[in-house]
Amino acid sequence: MPADRFPVSIDGRDLELSNLDKLMYPAAGFTKGEVIDYYTRIAPVMLPHLAGRAVTRIRYPNGVDGVHFFEKNKPGGTPDWVRLETLPVPGSTRSRETIDFVVVDELPTLVWLANLAALELHTPQWRIGADPDLLVVDLDPGAPAGLKECSAVAVLMRDRLEADGVAAYPKTSGKKGMQLCCPISGTQDAELVAAYAKKVAEELAAMVPGSITAKMAKAVRPGKVFIDWSQNSAAKTTVTPYSLRAQAEPTASTPLTWDEVEAVATGAQEPRHYLATEVLKRVEKHGDLMEDLLEPGPELPV
């Protein structure tokens, strides 16, 4: 066996790791070995958010500065112990077209994907065979708006959702903006969930038209926060909590406390994204701030 490849056994599963010294984040000196280490250590809080969901991967075989590709279908050489689910292609009009999706229910699968340089993991708002159990709103800032403006909109959105009995949990996207994730009943279809999210987004945009838009057109977004309600489409995925992001530095999508969001919104705290090492320390301190997403929430008012 080549010197840069070696076999490991994790929870009774045999797999082979390779090229652990390869730089995945060259500007930060962050290697593939460190990517695998991060995903191994974050697994206790991340796996519950991945479990039962078809995962889309974004792979960077030569690091974040190299070519990348989205992958939904199982890759070649997938071990026979990896859970696969054959599902219709999201958004496809051809009902016979299916994909063998990977489902990350256990640590060995997560490590195997990390070894394939799947830096980013994205999941849908539903578990396989069920209706959405999450409502997700993406807050996307149009420059010069940024994370501070997103935080202010997040607080407005939280209060509006709360009026309908819907609890919202914030996280950074790890790139530009942030997301709010809300546990819902899992008894209403994606079309209904998206319609409700659109209605709330349009209400807030009408209330603060100078700062918020619910329209997708790029031309109307500079200086505003776009409340992307379309994340709730059955064909969409959202970056999974704790997933790494392909930036110059190894940032991760980081759950936040509402105190932190309010502090950023008011200028009491500097807006920022968090590095993988910081996210691990935050989990030691806070546990999983999104643990409540794992239990069913209310039905949405129709």
Results as ranks from 00 to 15, higher is better:
287 G>H: 08
275 L>R: 13
102 V>K: 00
273 H>M: 13
245 R>Y: 09
10 I>D: 00
289 L>F: 13
217 A>S: 14
271 P>R: 13
227 I>F: 12
66 G>T: 14
243 S>D: 02
157 M>H: 11
33 G>W: 09
214 A>K: 08
291 E>F: 02
155 V>I: 15
301 P>G: 11
33 G>R: 04
184 I>Q: 08
88 P>I: 05
172 T>Q: 02
111 V>I: 13
282 R>N: 12
202 E>C: 10
93 T>N: 11
283 V>S: 01
67 V>D: 13
211 S>N: 14
108 P>L: 06
280 L>K: 07
274 Y>N: 03
56 T>E: 12
282 R>H: 14
185 S>D: 03
133 D>R: 05
73 N>M: 02
112 W>C: 02
195 A>R: 09
264 V>T: 06
113 L>R: 07
98 T>L: 08
68 H>I: 01
198 K>F: 03
176 K>T: 09
103 V>N: 01
261 V>I: 10
261 V>R: 09
266 T>Y: 07
284 E>M: 07
258 W>Y: 05
70 F>D: 04
87 L>C: 13
124 P>K: 00
123 T>H: 01
117 A>H: 10
249 E>G: 00
159 D>Y: 12
296 P>Y: 15
89 V>Y: 13
86 T>I: 06
110 L>R: 02
149 E>I: 09
216 M>T: 12
229 W>A: 08
29 G>K: 12
268 A>I: 14
161 L>M: 15
277 T>I: 08
134 L>P: 03
24 M>I: 15
49 H>A: 04
111 V>K: 03
52 G>F: 08
159 D>R: 14
114 A>D: 00
198 K>Y: 04
106 E>L: 01
233 S>A: 15
5 R>C: 04
201 A>I: 07
149 E>C: 05
1 M>L: 11
148 K>F: 06
30 F>I: 13
117 A>C: 14
120 E>R: 04
228 D>G: 09
41 R>A: 06
267 G>Y: 06
228 D>S: 10
241 P>G: 10
220 V>R: 01
36 I>Q: 02
180 L>I: 05
105 D>V: 07
204 L>C: 10
138 D>E: 13
52 G>I: 01
128 I>F: 03
55 V>A: 13
42 I>Y: 03
85 E>M: 02
192 L>D: 01
174 G>T: 06
7 P>M: 11
118 A>D: 11
126 W>P: 00
272 R>L: 14
68 H>D: 10
139 L>C: 09
207 M>A: 15
90 P>W: 07
235 A>P: 01
20 L>P: 00
145 A>R: 03
9 S>L: 13
107 L>W: 04
2 P>T: 14
210 G>L: 14
